[in-house]
Simulated scan of single mutants.
Amino acid sequence: MGFELSVVAAIFFLTAMVLGSFSYSMLTTSNEIVSDASEEQYKIQNAKLKTNIEVEDAIAGNYSGTYNLTVTLSNIGSESVYFDELNVLVDGNLEPYTYSDIAATWTPAETRNLTIAGLSGTGTHRVKVVTRNGVSAYSSYTV
Rank of each mutant, 00 (worst) to 15 (best):
residue 60 A to H: 04
residue 62 N to W: 01
residue 82 Y to D: 14
residue 76 I to Q: 09
residue 69 L to C: 10
residue 84 D to L: 12
residue 64 S to V: 10
residue 73 L to E: 09
residue 75 N to W: 01
residue 74 S to R: 15
residue 70 T to C: 02
residue 78 S to F: 12
residue 76 I to H: 06
residue 62 N to I: 13
residue 78 S to P: 03
residue 74 S to G: 10
residue 77 G to D: 02
residue 80 S to V: 02
residue 64 S to P: 12
residue 76 I to S: 14
residue 62 N to H: 08
residue 67 Y to H: 10
residue 67 Y to I: 06
residue 63 Y to Q: 05
residue 74 S to T: 12
residue 68 N to D: 15
residue 85 E to I: 03
residue 81 V to T: 08
residue 76 I to K: 10
residue 75 N to P: 09
residue 71 V to H: 05
residue 81 V to Q: 00
residue 69 L to S: 03
residue 62 N to T: 13
residue 64 S to A: 15
residue 69 L to F: 07
residue 84 D to C: 05
residue 83 F to Y: 09
residue 84 D to R: 11
residue 64 S to Y: 06
residue 64 S to D: 14
residue 75 N to K: 10
residue 73 L to Q: 00
residue 63 Y to L: 11
residue 71 V to M: 02
residue 81 V to D: 01
residue 61 G to D: 00
residue 70 T to L: 02
residue 75 N to Q: 04
residue 66 T to L: 03
residue 83 F to H: 08
residue 68 N to C: 06
residue 78 S to H: 00
residue 57 D to H: 14
residue 68 N to S: 14
residue 66 T to R: 06
residue 59 I to W: 00
residue 81 V to F: 02
residue 61 G to M: 05
residue 81 V to E: 01
residue 81 V to I: 15
residue 85 E to A: 06
residue 70 T to N: 12
residue 82 Y to E: 12
residue 86 L to A: 01
residue 78 S to C: 00
residue 74 S to Q: 06
residue 71 V to E: 02
residue 61 G to N: 08
residue 74 S to W: 05
residue 59 I to F: 07
residue 67 Y to D: 03
residue 60 A to F: 07
residue 62 N to A: 11
residue 58 A to Q: 13
residue 81 V to L: 01
residue 84 D to Y: 13
residue 59 I to E: 14
residue 85 E to H: 06
residue 65 G to H: 12
residue 84 D to F: 07
residue 83 F to Q: 13
residue 77 G to H: 03
residue 74 S to V: 09
residue 59 I to S: 10
residue 84 D to K: 04
residue 86 L to M: 07
residue 77 G to F: 01
residue 85 E to C: 02
residue 85 E to V: 00
residue 76 I to C: 08
residue 67 Y to F: 15
residue 68 N to K: 14
residue 58 A to N: 04
residue 62 N to F: 08
residue 61 G to C: 03
residue 67 Y to P: 00
